[in-house]
């Protein structure tokens, strides 16, 4: 099962890649009483028929459906999530968690998504807000600040330091 927020985000965001999205925006906001994340993409979207099927499968689990990720998310956040989609404009998933729900390895999730972005074919915009601090990154801008053989490690360091700093008390 998906035991933390970082895995829930990854599981939903991977679907954005599968949907053919070229732009993916993810935001994670932490406040005293909640964690809130929003993932939106410009992929192929989900038809009203399929969306209805997803909601029914969440309410009444059945074998053979392929919406385990969304079911897992619903379970993890106690049903506090919303999926909206359109065949044309893509999909948006929002979820709210209690503040004591494990955050998990957010840096690892960001690195994994950056690895999937390739070099500019998919653009990822990731933002984190925690009280008065924030950290944002854009997959395309990252290629500007990095260079040569050290590229991978410079990006990894940037992500790890940024995430650590934003959640530091």
């Amino acid at each position: 099962m998906l035991n933390d927020i970082s895995l829930c985000i990854l599981d939903i965001a991977v679907n954005s890649f599968k949907s053919g999205a070229k732009n993916i925006g993810i935001s994670l906001i932490k406040s005293d009483d909640r964690f809130l994340f929003e993932i939106k993409d410009d992929g192929c979207g989900i038809s009203a028929y399929t969306l209805d099927k997803i909601h029914k499968s969440i309410d009444k689990p059945e074998k053979g459906t392929s919406f385990n990720g969304l079911k897992g998310l619903y379970k993890a956040c106690g049903g506090n999530c919303k999926i909206s989609s359109d065949d044309i404009i893509g999909t948006k998933v929002t979820a709210r968690f209690l503040p004591d729900f494990p955050l998990g390895d957010i840096s690892g999730t960001i690195m994994c998504l950056l690895n999937l972005c390739g070099q500019g074919d998919v653009m990822l915009d990731f933002s984190i807000e925690c009280e008065d601090k924030s950290f944002t990154l854009n997959s395309i801008s990252l290629y500007e600040i990095s260079c040569g053989k050290e590229k991978y490690y410079s990006i990894k360091r940037y992500v790890q330091e940024g995430v650590t700093e934003v959640f530091k008390k």
């Binding site: 993409d41 915009d125 395309i140």
Partner: peptide, 18 residues
Amino acid sequence: MKSLEELKAIKEKMKSTI
């Protein structure tokens, strides 16, 4: 968080550099 339209605009602007 930026809107998808803003993201597309950034990508278009950066196209020549990547």
